[in-house]
Design a protein around this nucleic acid. Structure first.
Lengths: 341, 341
DNA sequence: ATGAAAGCGCTAACAG
DNA sequence: CTGTTAGCGCTTTCAT
């Protein structure tokens, strides 16, 4: 059991003051090179490690960034997190990551504990359930940088990083129309989150332009899990006018749809054309390959990290913009291509 | 800008001592109910929040658990993390997550910063590169609970959570043999990590039993990324004796292999039978569906969390065992099934 | 049941 | 260039 060694121990050992030790350790300019190296050596020998609690308490900062996401284990989210972690880590920041599991309660709780843990900034992608936003006041009131990504809400002085979801929804739907679809169903998550709502608006806009919008063709799911697939197939088969296009706001679920539809005897893309969302790796694995909207997750993570760091440094530049809009991209693959016959 | 309020502020406001406030807030038994509720109310009204730095400094603990993983963004790892987070969060612990990106240097650095951040325990899945383990001494020397999962190393008093990789490798290979394969190639990650090495040993054992082991059929890849797929195909086509079986220790990469092989004109499972590892969702998306070894990631995360918590509590039970061996399972799907002709 | 006071380990203003 | 000293905010022992 190694004993912990403090700057006082080093000070005593070297016959200098704790302040000198502290300054040396922090490479303060006003310390002679000689003392510095003496201190560093002693620190090395004794296995000295700084106590961050004490340091943080004194400095009133933690070099830690909090992150709240709905769910860790999706390809998209873990990719975003990977980007955030890379940037934060390179800048000497630790990441405290927690998941809300789509629950407003848990999001509130996590917000509270992250605040108390003294994170220097907070990055949030909102739970689907969340309808009130007061729990973020603790951060905004104290001017602690708060940033939303992907699932955002507009709060003064809180930057957001998103893609143009309306446009993306429009692009996806327009593409299906261009391929000849006339009765397009939209399968999405709770419209409570603007990311999803905007995609829906884009979908509606494209259809309104050609007078083909049908409210019955909207299917809002609670989760995107495989248990919900039956209701999808039921709705499709029950449709008075045959469904010939499917815009699903999640690749993984779109893939479930493809599998279920094929099993039910539908031909894809001949009978029904399908487009997903995110460009998850799985979209290239399914047969037929899934058309989708490319969502730059890693870049989003990197930008979220850079943006929050620049806020933390007080530097003003592109990353400290109020809103960053990332480009999405329509990716056309087999699942939605018009069949020439 | 809200001002931060401390227990001193509350004490002054209520005309009691800071000690009483502290005790009330912590529900200490020796404080009258009346004072307690008085304090709680004042805390509520003023928006008091505990300062964890001060608390941690005083208590010498952080209610924080550190986690180091090779890479956040894989289905398997994010699922494990999701399990760990659930358990930790429910027990009132925060998680500081960092990725080594398979680099020994970064793993060392992260170990150091997590130590300095005062985590109460550390959970590690080792980087593939890592060959020395001294950097964990800071933890073991001070008896800070340290646990390895998935990619483990045996260090006294450090529990490990793994599956029986040797047996899993054996099962996978034996299955291919049972399906009639006679020239089975093994595609795996660097054998530096015992998880992979043991799978290799199992593979070899199954083949040795029927005198079919060929060292030339071992292909060790640095990464499992799509850029390496060409070398795989090259090796398969160049094999003097036709390869008729493939045991790939990663589903995602196995899927790349299937796609590339199909494109190269091989029939699966007729010409080559394939089995993967992990039972990632993608294994059910590829056509033909991929046989694989089920790896219980979420359970592993949950158990890792429970195990480390029980160490933290000093309780002795099943979760505080030195080694937990989770059951894997052979899952047979189309990609490896003997074709009846 | 409550208060006084020391201590956790580090930082920084001030003094020399 | 270095030392003294006063916090940072909370916990806890020892009194009362």
């Amino acid at each position: 059991m190694e004993k912990k060694v403090t700057i006082y121990d080093l000070a005593k050992r070297l016959g200098v003051s704790p302040a000198t030790v502290s300054r040396s350790l922090n490479d303060h300019p006003s310390i002679s090179l000689k003392t510095k190296s003496k201190v560093m050596l002693a620190a090395e020998e004794t296995g000295y490690r700084i106590n961050k609690f004490a340091s943080n308490l004194s400095l009133q900062k933690s070099n830690t960034i909090g992150v709240i996401v709905p769910k860790l284990n999706s390809d998209f989210m873990s990719t975003v997190l990977s980007g955030i972690e890379k940037i934060a880590n390179d800048a000497g920041y630790n990441l405290i990551i927690s998941q809300s599991l789509e629950s407003e309660e848990k999001e509130k709780f996590n917000t509270k504990t992250l605040f108390e843990s003294g994170v220097d900034a907070l990055l949030v992608s909102l739970a689907n359930e969340t309808k009130t936003y007061d729990h973020f006041n603790t951060f905004t009131n104290r001017k602690i940088p708060l940033l939303f990504f992907d699932r955002v809400i507009n709060i003064p002085d809180c930057p957001t990083i998103i893609i143009d979801n309306l446009r993306a929804g429009y692009d996806a739907t327009k593409h299906l129309l261009d391929q000849g679809c006339r009765n397009i169903m939209h399968i999405t998550h709770g419209l409570n989150r603007s990311a999803y709502y905007q995609r829906y608006v884009g979908y509606k806009k494209a259809l309104d332009e050609v007078k083909l919008f049908e409210i019955e063709n909207l299917l809002v799911l609670d989760q995107f899990n495989s248990r919900e697939i039956d209701s999808v197939i039921a709705k499709i088969t029950a449709s008075p006018e045959p469904i010939d296009g499917l815009f699903v706001t999640n690749d993984t679920f779109a893939v479930y749809c493809i599998k279920a539809l094929l099993k039910a005897g539908y031909r894809i893309p001949d009978d029904i054309k399908i487009i997903g969302f995110n460009n998850d790796p799985v979209s290239e694995v399914i047969n037929p390959e899934l058309s989708t909207i490319e969502y730059p997750g890693y870049r989003m993570g990197v930008l979220a990290g850079q943006s929050i760091l620049s806020h933390l440094n007080g530097s003003i530049n592109i990353e400290s913009a109020d809103q960053i809009l990332l480009k999405h991209q329509l990716i056309i693959r087999q699942s939605s291509r018009k069949t020439t016959n």
